[in-house]
Simulated scan of single mutants.
Amino acid sequence: MYKYRAILKRVGIVLIAVGILDIAYWIYCISQGQSYSSIFNIPAVVAGVFLFRGSLRAVPLVTWVAAFMLSNLVSDFILLPFLKPAELWAIEFRLDAIALCRSLLLTIILIALHCWIYTQLRAAPVVSASVRSGHSASTPKLAFILGVALVVLPVGMMHFIRGGATGAKAVEVARTQYGEGYKYHLTGMGWYWPNEVHASLTAYNEHEIKPVQVQWKQRSK
Rank of each mutant, 00 (worst) to 15 (best):
I20D: 00
L21N: 02
I23R: 01
I23A: 08
I23D: 07
A24P: 10
Y25F: 15
W26F: 15
I27E: 13
Y28W: 15
S31D: 11
G33V: 12
Y36F: 15
Y36L: 08
I39K: 00
I39A: 10
F40H: 08
N41K: 01
N41Y: 07
N41M: 12
N41D: 15
I42G: 07
I42T: 10
V46S: 07
V46C: 10
A47L: 12
A47Y: 11
G48K: 01
V49M: 12
F50M: 11
F50W: 11
L51C: 05
L51D: 06
R53I: 09
G54A: 03
S55R: 03
A58S: 10
A58P: 08
P60A: 01
L61K: 04
L61W: 14
V62W: 03
V62Q: 01
V62P: 00
W64P: 00
V65A: 07
A66E: 02
M69F: 13
L73K: 06
V74A: 08
V74H: 01
S75I: 02
F77C: 05
I78Q: 06
I78W: 06
L79V: 12
L79D: 07
L83C: 10
K84F: 14
P85V: 11
A86P: 02
E87F: 02
W89Y: 07
E92F: 07
L95I: 09
I98Y: 12
I98Q: 09
A99Y: 04
R102C: 14
R102F: 15
L104V: 10
L104H: 07
L105Q: 03
L106I: 09
T107A: 06
